[in-house]
Amino acid sequence: MSARFDERDIGKRVEAIAKGGDGVEPEQILEVVKSVMASIDGDLSTVNLKFYAEIESLAKFIENLKLELAAVRPDEINDEHLPAAADELEAIVGATEQATNTIFEAVEAIEELTAKMNKKVAPQVSDAVTRVYEACGFQDITGQRITKVVTALKHIETKVEALLEAFGEEIRQLPGQERPDNPEPPDGSEMHGPQLERDANNQDDIDAILASLD
């Protein structure tokens, strides 16, 4: 738009010189101006070239982005990390529920015993039992919060899946970071925290391992 405006403006100037030029041959000026116009045309082509260069730069950026995405291994995120995180969270809910039930059984047994306690102690024990019941509500609240986190993880999983679909198989085939067979935790320690029940060794397993090492 601005190039056209400039072109019209120069055209008008050229016409003015052509009409009223003094001391200079209008034809000469016209020729000069025409050559200037031609050079402007040349500049416009340069603009086009710059535009193409920008597109090329953008293409390189996208290519680099693909490489970086491949390095992050979004397929691993969806196939391993997110499901593992969801499993851990569900294990938390399961473990707290189990612990809460154990607390309930113990406290209900104590409450039964209040009938055999003297009249001074029984109400105090009963009040303490009530506070334990109230506190056990944490399991319901944490369970609901964890459910929300799991929902958020599933949302992220959907978005990553959409990303993978957008780039197609291309991103899966790009060379990502090499992954060791048994990756160590980020801090480099040997600790992996509590294991999921299905993966964990129970005490008998541990004893068997220890015995096998004797």
Binding site: T100, N101, F104, G137, G143
Partner: peptide
């Protein structure tokens, strides 16, 4: 009515008290 059995147990016990 609650989908968390823990909460059912809490309410039941408190009502019992």
């Amino acid at each position: 009515v609650d989908d968390y059995k823990t909460m059912l147990r809490i309410i039941r016990n408190l009502l019992k008290q």
